[in-house]
Write a protein that binds this DNA or RNA. Structure first.
Lengths: 166, 166
DNA sequence: TATCGGTATCTTACCAAGAAGAGGAATGAA
DNA sequence: TTCATTCCTCTTCTTGGTAAGATACCGATA
């Protein structure tokens, strides 16, 4: 009848009836869903020789528009990982010819990370399929439910300070 | 006005107007929220000398009820990490005197992971505070919104096969 | 204009944690 | 007894975090 989180909540109500554990129903489900969705999306990209971290960088660069290049600092802000992790991601992706490092003529502290033609083609070929896959993962929701869910989640994100990528 | 995911979606509508990217509004927000919430919860437990992985094991054992012991296999199912990760978690927690390994007289392949008195007291002392912290993280939602959110997320989880922990 | 301290940006080195998969002991069924 | 299965552990690999380092820029001051 219920999901895994219902089982967790039932156990807590038995063991700690003194605590109202309603937040678990939200926080626990968000965390479990994030893991399940990430695993599914990982499976999808792996079929095409990519992993989530690479897809993350490719999509961020692609949606930034021409000329498909951003500094590592911008990638850090978009990715929710640290600068050291981004440096290593870029190293791996350069080795796979997905991106290239281009010196910045104006500010020599920075580098521009640019999609290669191969990287551009890879993400452009995959993007519609990726969205179709996410659509499949959400097929249990009708459009109204999905909209309501997105709105409630936006409220939560904003309250936690997740206002912008810049 | 919007959150970070709105910015992502705007960019995609500009760059790939041929693709209806509505699922991003749900999947992207679940993933960002999971990271933000995990970081907040990590901060909370770190103040008391624990990390998320330890708190995960402590809460799983505690809510299982007397005598507060489970096999590593059960912990694997509850935790969404691999068996090797659980072995290492237990090693660390034994070193911190939070749990102990108790041989199983019936089936000598298995071990019972049991809360020590210190582990039991640690999680019992922290649990109400932990729930209060989660309540704070969700304070942007009123109770109806939270209930609706939990229900929609349950629908999603069940559709993805997350039916039980056993 | 030259210089100096502070700041910004990326990279590097080291460490912690989990994934993947092999290994080994114990169980149970034929 | 034998052999497949179950269960935990161990080893190796990958990834990310942390913190320090290197280089470049900038602004104030003389």
């Amino acid at each position: 009848m219920g999901d895994a989180v219902d089982a967790v909540m039932d156990a807590w109500r038995r063991e700690r009836p003194d605590v109202d554990i309603w937040p678990v129903g939200v926080v626990g489900r968000i965390q479990r869903l994030a893991r399940l969705l990430e695993a599914e999306i990982q499976d999808f990209f792996r079929r095409y020789g990519l992993d989530n971290s690479e897809a993350d960088v490719l999509t961020t660069l692609r949606r930034s528009g021409e000329p498909y290049e951003l500094t590592p600092g911008r990638l850090v802000k978009a990715s929710m990982v640290t600068s050291g992790a981004i440096t290593k991601r870029i190293d791996r992706m350069v080795a796979k010819n997905l991106v290239e490092r281009v010196p910045d003529a104006v500010d020599r502290r920075t580098v521009r990370i640019r999609l290669t033609l191969h990287g551009r083609q890879t993400i452009d070929d995959l993007f519609a399929l990726h969205i179709a896959n996410e659509t499949r993962l959400l097929q249990a929701l009708d459009r109204d439910q999905a909209d309501g869910l997105a709105n409630t989640l936006r409220t939560l994100l904003q309250s936690l300070g997740d206002t912008s990528l810049t």
